[in-house]
Every structure is written in C-alpha cells, then in structure tokens.
C-alpha cells in the first residue's frame, strides 16, 4: 500500500478494498439491490412561504462530498439516495440564491430517527 496514498474525499485514508466492487458502467451491468441509506427531499420557500424556483440546494455529507442541485418551479428539490454508510444525521442541507440568504432550515422528519431514510426539509430564503 506504500505506493498508493489512498485519499478519500472525506479526508479519511482507507483501503482500496473498501471500495464497492459492484459498480458498473453499462446498461446491463450486474444487478445489484441498491443498498440505499438516507435520501433527502423538500422545498425552498421565500419569507412569504412561496416556492423559490432555481434555488441552489446543497447536501453536504459530514467530512465528505457535497451534492448540489436546483429546485424546480414548485421549489422542490430531491437528492437520490446515498449508501447505507450515510445516516440522516450525517447530512447537512442548505440553500441559496442570488440576492437571497438562507433564513432557516426546518427539518420536518424527526432527528435521530435511526430507521428514517427519507428526510424532508424546508429551507427558507429571505432577501439580502
């Protein structure tokens, strides 16, 4: 292993053997039950509770990778599921948009709920 400095983006060096072997690239790769952990969805709204279109929403995994998406016309965002190593409490959701700042984030799904995989949040923006 001395020839490789295995750098994971979570800044945790781990063995390459921890990398899932079941990843495939094609249309007919090996069937794999998607071993999903938490996934997130919700809405971005303004101070009046109206949905905000094209707001940037970021899901940042603790010490790890960021996922960025944008809301639909209805203010909806969703992130596909992460793997089972990611619990709901490992993820921080934030939102932003030009000329707005994040006022607050409301997690509608109870925290520390171990069995919870689908987490809804509401992110509120207010004018800068």
């Amino acid at each position: 292993m001395d020839a490789i400095k295995a750098v994971m983006t979570g800044l945790v060096a781990i063995s390459i053997f921890a990398i899932p072997a079941a990843r495939a690239a094609g249309e007919m790769g090996e069937a794999g039950a998607k071993d999903e952990g938490a996934h997130f969805f919700g809405f971005v709204k303004d101070a009046n509770g109206k949905p905000v279109d094209q707001a940037k929403v970021t899901a940042e995994i603790k010490n790890g990778i960021k996922y960025v998406t944008h809301t639909t016309k209805n203010g909806l965002y969703k992130f596909g599921g992460f793997n089972k190593s990611v619990t709901a409490d490992d993820v921080t959701i934030s939102c932003s948009k030009d000329k707005f700042r994040q006022a607050r984030i409301i997690r509608k799904t109870p925290a520390k709920a171990k069995a919870v995989k689908s987490v809804e949040t509401e992110c509120r923006l207010q004018p800068e």
Binding site: V7, M8, G10, I16, A24, E30, A31, K34, I61, G64
Partner: peptide
Amino acid sequence: GKYELIDPFKYMPEGSNHS
C-alpha cells in the same frame, strides 16, 4: 510516479452504476 486514489462516488448506493 505515485498515484493517489479518489472515490467521488463513495456515498452513492452500492449496486448503482457510476463510472
């Protein structure tokens, strides 16, 4: 001549397609 290894799909569900 040494390589580093970075896994951008580390948190994607196992069994999903990423390449």
